[in-house]
Design a protein around this nucleic acid. Structure first.
Length: 589
DNA sequence: AACGCATGAAACC
DNA sequence: TGGTTTCCCTGCGT
């Protein structure tokens, strides 16, 4: 029986942006085809029409986005590739990969030359039906905190000991701590970072209230979720933050992050293909190396859960790599002077991909499988680390397109599945659920590619790129846009309720029926922006107090870190604003 | 309701 | 090699 909090009346419309009902997955863009010719010519480079006709037809399997333009006298017929598999010749709706029961999952042709394995493979593929079927419950949103962040959410992590605590980071560098059990209890540290908080990782059960976070402001911080107090472990841009130059060549951003709890090591990658090890006890940098292509982001890091010497990284350079940490410790700071990078002598394997790799993770229990998410709309599975030098054992075609406005999708293992098959990933492409276009979160079987469950809620119409199954309890938390959602299985006895979409919303005049999609109403609304604006107004009026107030007796805090705190030891940045109040009160509207 | 904007990979020149 | 253009089922704010 979920505890729930009334959503604010006025909030109903907030999360609903009239999902564009144009579900036309047409490859033939009639609008364009029928538009006056001049318009088309304007839109398309007249010169390359011919080229496209020729080259478009040969769209390779590697997922090239190519468009075929067919001139029809005055007009042109534009043929988009399938949004899902990126090939031409069919629509997304009729994509063979979409229709296939197992997501077009491709078994590797050359799994092994081993006869026994080949036999097993043969049996698995063509013999009796797969014996083990993973069961998945149906899920529903049990709790949500809307507009927790002021910008889109980029990352999540679960508290190592407190089951109901999750932290998240957003595009503006805010970090938040949310109790999805108590639903309205959350804390926002509004200025933990000054740019994208790309990754957050808890430091492990011993220092269980501490998180490490890596950010595009070039800083690696460790901070206390209870107090927000932080210490800076790395600052890649010691000259400070200058507005407007963040994406200049010289600016270094930190991305992929993992904490090797066993070794007391924080591992972080930057935007230049470099990797840093920081000793979690001394806070000292003990290694730096150019392990990926220069100038390319290191998008993820993961320490093998069983063999803590094994590290996997993924990168914009179209690879994931596996390293032996033991070979790294000597090589401190060699690339400090000029760009002479040591060509990774410690590299164990390179997992080539046809596009940018968003993430690469070892399986959570045995550490022997590998799951990568690549923006070619394919999720790849290696069943054994030892086969990582070869092609993936499976490629699962799945829509998680790169989109510049979205946080990159990452397929995440479910650490609770002892068979290490279940993983979760958000879906980019929308599907029609009783007249409403929703973007489900998919639960998939890594061994078969089978879709085990898809999570949808009528109140959640935005894309959910950030999703994580809880390591201990049956919860999946999703970050979508500025909000967080906690999903739980629908309990059978509670057979409930298909709670209709909020009446407030219907009364609102939209009257949009959500058809068959139920929506649980366990929402709490929270508008961080409104709070900030209010606070600012209050501050400018000269009164910064009024702390820690909230509606309905729930606790909520917005903690504005004192800027002077943040600039600690840093030469003043040109645009540093006068410091604000230390702890201005968050307040519910 | 109709925009404008932030923003990133990759193809193209 | 670097600057420019394209992609064109985002989400939010004005």
């Amino acid at each position: 029986m979920p505890r729930w909090v009334d959503a604010r009346e006025g909030d109903a419309e907030d999360e609903d942006d009239e999902p564009s009902s144009e579900d036309d997955e047409e490859e033939f863009d009639m609008d364009r085809a029928e538009a006056p010719a001049e318009q088309d010519v304007e839109a398309e480079e007249p010169g390359d029409t011919d080229e496209r006709v020729q080259s478009g037809a040969t769209a390779g399997p590697s997922g090239q986005k190519q468009k075929i333009t067919i001139p029809l006298g005055n007009r042109k017929l534009v043929c988009h590739p399938c949004y899902l598999c990126k090939q031409t010749g069919h629509t997304t709706m009729t994509c063979p990969y979409r229709i296939a029961p197992e997501h077009g999952c491709v078994q590797a042709a050359n799994l092994s030359s081993d006869t026994l394995l080949a036999t097993v493979l043969q049996r698995e593929q063509h013999g009796r039906k797969r014996e083990i079927h993973l069961e998945q419950p149906s899920w529903q949103v049990d709790a949500a905190v809307l507009k927790l962040h002021s910008r889109r959410c980029l990352c999540l992590d679960f508290h190592p000991t407190k089951d109901n605590i999750v932290v998240s980071g957003d595009k503006k560098g805010q970090v938040a701590v949310w109790d999805f059990e108590k639903v309205h209890e959350r804390t926002v540290y509004a200025q933990m970072h000054r740019a994208l908080a790309n990754n957050i990782k808890f430091m492990g059960p011993v220092q269980d209230s501490y998180c490490a976070s890596s950010s595009a402001d070039g800083k690696l911080k460790v901070w206390d979720v209870e107090t927000g107090f932080d210490r800076e472990l790395l600052n890649m841009n010691p000259d400070g933050w200058i507005q407007g130059v963040t994406d200049e060549k010289s600016w270094i951003m930190l991305y992929g992050l993992d904490v090797g709890v066993e070794k007391g090591l924080i591992i972080v990658g930057d935007s230049k293909g470099r990797l840093y090890f920081v000793d979690a006890r001394s806070d000292e940098k003990i290694f730096q190396g150019q392990l990926h292509k220069k100038g390319m982001k290191v998008t993820s890091c993961h320490v093998n859960p069983v063999d803590s010497n094994m590290l996997m990284t993924s990168s914009n350079d179209w690879t994931a790599k596996i390293f032996d940490i033991r070979n790294m410790s000597t090589n401190v700071d060699n690339s400090n002077g000029k760009g002479k990078e040591s060509p990774d002598p410690m590299q164990l394997a390179v997992l080539d991909h046809p596009k940018v790799v968003n993430s690469a993770y070892f399986s959570p229990i045995s550490g022997s499988k590998i799951l990568t998410t690549c923006i070619d709309n394919r999720i790849r599975v290696w069943d054994y680390v030892l086969s990582a030098h070869g092609p993936a054992d499976r490629e699962i075609v799945h829509s998680h397109d790169f989109n510049r406005y979205l946080t990159p999708f990452r397929a995440e293992w479910d650490p609770k599945d002892p068979s290490e098959r279940t993983f979760v990933v958000g879906r980019y492409i929308s599907e029609d659920f009783g007249g409403v276009a929703l973007h489900p979160i998919d639960v998939l079987d890594a061994s078969t590619g089978r879709l085990l469950s898809q999570l949808v809620d009528a109140n959640l119409s935005t894309i959910c790129p950030v999703n994580k199954p809880h390591p201990r309890v049956n919860v999946i938390v999703s970050g979508s846009s500025r909000s967080l959602y906690a999903w739980r299985p629908v309990s059978k006895d509670e057979d409930d309720p298909k709670l209709p979409v909020k009446e407030a919303k219907e009364a609102k005049g939209k009257g949009k029926s959500t058809g068959s999609v139920p929506s649980s109403a366990h929402f709490i609304s929270f508008d961080a922006d409104a709070t900030e604006k209010k606070k600012r107004k209050a501050a400018s009026a000269g009164a910064g107090e009024e702390a820690g107030k909230s509606k309905k007796g729930g606790k909520s805090k917005i903690v504005e870190k004192d800027e002077s705190d943040e600039e600690n030891g840093e030469p003043s940045s040109p645009n540093s604003k006068p410091s604000k109040g230390k702890k201005a009160g968050g307040k519910k509207k």
